[in-house]
Amino acid sequence: MSQSEPSSSAPASDAHLREDTLTSEAVYRGHFLELRRDRVALPDGREATREYVVHPGAVMIVAILPDGRLVMERQFRYPVRQTMIEFPAGKLDAGEGGLACAQRELLEETGYRAGRWAKAGVMHPVIGYATEVIEVWFADDLSLGERHLDEGEFLDVFTATQQELEDWMRDGQLTDAKTVVGMMWLLQWRAGRWPLQWQTV
C-alpha cells in the first residue's frame, strides 16, 4: 500500500486521529499522582489500552537578576538518581492559579520575590504517558529574602549566566527538559523575537 505525500500544513480537522475513551479505571492513587488505565476506540474501529499518569500541573520560573544572571537550583531527582540543574519549579496546589503558584514556589525554594512577572507559554513535557502541563513564567525586579522549603525538600540555589547554561546544555550537564525549554524562551526573548507581556505585582 502506497503512502500519500506529507501535507505542507495542518489539516482542518483531527477527527481521523482521535481516540475515544470506552472505559477508565484508576490503577493507583498516590500523594499527588494517579495512574489510570483506559480502554479506547481507535480511529479504525479497533480497541487498545492506554496507561497514563494524571498530574495536577506545574509552573517553572525563569528568574532574572539585575545583572542578567539567572536563579538556578540543583536538586537530586530520585527517579533518574541524579542531581539535576533546573530553573525553579513546582506543582500547582488544588485551585491555585499559575501566577500564584509561580510566586509561591519562587519564594519557598529560593527566597526571591519578583516585582514583575510575564507568562511566556505552556509546555507538555511527557505527552506519551502523562497529563502534565507546565506554565513557563519569567520574573525580574528580584529581591532576596528567606526561603521556606517543604519538609523533606533539599536543594541548592545558585546563579548562572546564560552562556554557562548554554555550555552545560551542549556538554550534557543540563538535560532537564523544562529547563531546556525555558532556555529556548529566554534566548528568543533576548534576541527580540518573542516579546513578553510584563505585569507588575
Rank of each mutant, 00 (worst) to 15 (best):
R39T: 11
P66W: 08
D67G: 15
Q162M: 05
E86V: 10
M60F: 08
R147Q: 06
I134E: 02
A139R: 01
R104L: 05
L70M: 07
R46T: 13
Y129F: 08
W189K: 00
E153H: 11
I61V: 15
S24G: 04
Y129A: 02
T161N: 04
L107S: 14
L174Q: 01
Q188P: 02
D14A: 06
D141H: 10
S13Q: 00
V27E: 12
Q197N: 10
S4D: 03
H124R: 11
Q188K: 11
A10F: 06
D67V: 14
D171E: 08
A139T: 01
E73C: 14
F76T: 06
G121R: 15
D67A: 15
R81N: 14
A48C: 01
T110V: 07
D167F: 00
H124Q: 09
V62I: 15
S7N: 11
A177N: 02
I64H: 04
E96C: 12
G95K: 10
E108V: 00
A12P: 06
R81E: 13
I127E: 05
G98S: 11
D38T: 06
T21A: 15
L17F: 06
W194H: 09
L42P: 14
F87H: 08
V54T: 04
E132H: 01
P56H: 03
M84I: 12
S8D: 12
A58L: 05
D44N: 14
F138N: 01
P56L: 03
A100E: 10
L187Y: 00
R69C: 01
R81S: 13
E109S: 04
H55E: 07
V80F: 02
T110G: 04
T83N: 11
E132V: 02
W185Q: 08
A26E: 13
E166K: 08
G57V: 01
G68K: 10
V27M: 14
G30Q: 11
I134K: 05
L65V: 00
F76G: 03
A191E: 02
G152H: 13
P125C: 10
R37N: 07
G57S: 03
S8R: 14
W194G: 01
E86C: 13
E164P: 05
A102N: 05
D20Q: 15
D93N: 12
L186W: 09
D93Q: 13
T200H: 10
E34V: 12
Q173F: 11
L22E: 10
V53I: 13
R39C: 08
A114T: 01
G68H: 08
R39G: 05
G30S: 10
T83Y: 12
W168N: 11
V122Y: 02
A191M: 01
R77V: 12
I85D: 11
W117E: 05
P195T: 06
E151H: 15
R116Q: 04
V157T: 12
K178R: 15
F138C: 03
M169E: 05
